[in-house]
Design a protein around this nucleic acid. Structure first.
Lengths: 214, 214
DNA sequence: GCTGAGGGTGAGCGGGCGCTTAGCGAGCCC
DNA sequence: GGGCTCGCTAAGCGCCCGCTCACCCTCAGC
């Protein structure tokens, strides 16, 4: 049904690359705490106790609290980029690839809302260097979506005047899902992904004149 | 050109209703500080010094730091609601009113990004009671936009399957402007407002089948 | 000119923060 | 089985937070 398959579920078995087991537990605890209360409102004692460890244990695996946020942010952005790249480089028309990209990107933001919230909304809490590195990843994310839209315009599938502005709006729409999505709410990540893919295709005028419906 | 005229400029002469002059200066300082660094990362000393006062002066006009956020959030939400109501209750087709609502709502989020950021993104820092009050205002905001979309569907102007979901997406798109908009960037609030009005009309299938362009 | 009220200040409180350090105990090498 | 390594803890340092309190100016009323 989709090209980016099990990745979009969210937190199936992520953070697998974080290697000492204790470090991974701390990182996971930090993600939860940051998502619930925000970076600045979270204390190192809170993170450590969620991981079942003493406050000092954190500093064996991470130099500072900010390093935790940096690691979370980088891994999360790389995951997001990978999801978009998978959809973007699949076979199919620009229309199919854009729909696939949006729906899997949205499913990631909805299903893995905990992670996505931290990744998308705590960027400003990073120091200048870490922030600059993450902004580089964001530019790649932007380029990936813009690429699909440009190809659709070139092939005549899409009707878009302001490609940059529309790219921004499409990404913005997907990212904001992490702000409002509620796991206990009436919609599943899959439903939101399908709805948003449809809305985005309308935004780019896919289907050509006369085909408002998908 | 627009029904909601000078309100959308952002911070022309807002906070006029905050009455002792010192209280208004403190509130304005708090808005700036919260927008730049976030609620939890802002200190009462920072707010007071931005307002040119001593740290203790804050507590003459406000009981706690949270009361500042609460006041800002309520005034901001009331302003946002007023903007949408003005557009919603104007004369004209649902298409015209939706375009007007989106463009003025977006102009407010872009032009008054400082305020909008605090209003839209610091909600979770409020206590339960204040939070519940603000959520009530948000439901009214949602109802206003949903009303326009429902009327457009009824009149046959719009082609929307999931009215609630589409309303959510339209509002989400507008609100997220406060996250990414950059005053020093290439776009003016007016340009973003016009682009977004166009995109939203496409999302609701305005113009009927065969009229992808506005 | 005295008085009272109210907006403002300087100094500082109790507490919780990020982070450090000395030391402990389990497991591996020889 | 003695000693080393390493993941971890208990205790706590220094700092800065939100907030308070005793006091001080300024100015209106008489």
């Amino acid at each position: 049904m989709s090209t980016a398959e099990e990745t979009a579920g969210g937190e199936a078995q992520p953070w697998g690359e974080v290697t000492p087991d204790a470090a991974r537990r701390l990182l996971l605890a930090a993600v939860e705490a940051f998502a619930e209360r925000g970076y600045h409102a979270t204390t190192t004692r809170d993170i450590a106790s969620r991981a079942g460890m003493s406050p000092a244990a954190l500093y064996i695996h991470y130099k500072t609290k900010e390093e935790l946020l940096h690691r979370i942010s980088r891994i999360g952005h790389e995951k997001a980029l990978e999801i978009l790249r998978t959809a973007s480089r699949a076979e199919g028309s620009a229309t199919e690839r854009l729909a696939d990209a949006v729906s899997s990107f949205v499913r990631w933001h909805a299903g893995g809302r905990t992670t996505a919230r931290v990744v998308q909304y705590e960027l400003d809490s990073l120091g200048p260097d870490a922030r600059a590195e993450i902004l580089g990843l964001r530019r790649k994310v932007d380029a990936e979506v813009r690429g699909i839209i440009e190809e659709g315009v070139r092939s005549g599938e899409f009707d878009v005047v302001d490609v940059h502005g529309t790219t921004l709006a499409v990404l913005s729409l997907c990212i904001d899902v992490a702000r409002w999505f509620n796991v206990d709410g009436p919609r599943t990540p899959e439903e939101v992904g399908a709805l948003y893919a449809d809305l985005v295709l309308r935004m780019v005028g896919a289907g050509g004149p006369g085909a408002a419906q998908r």
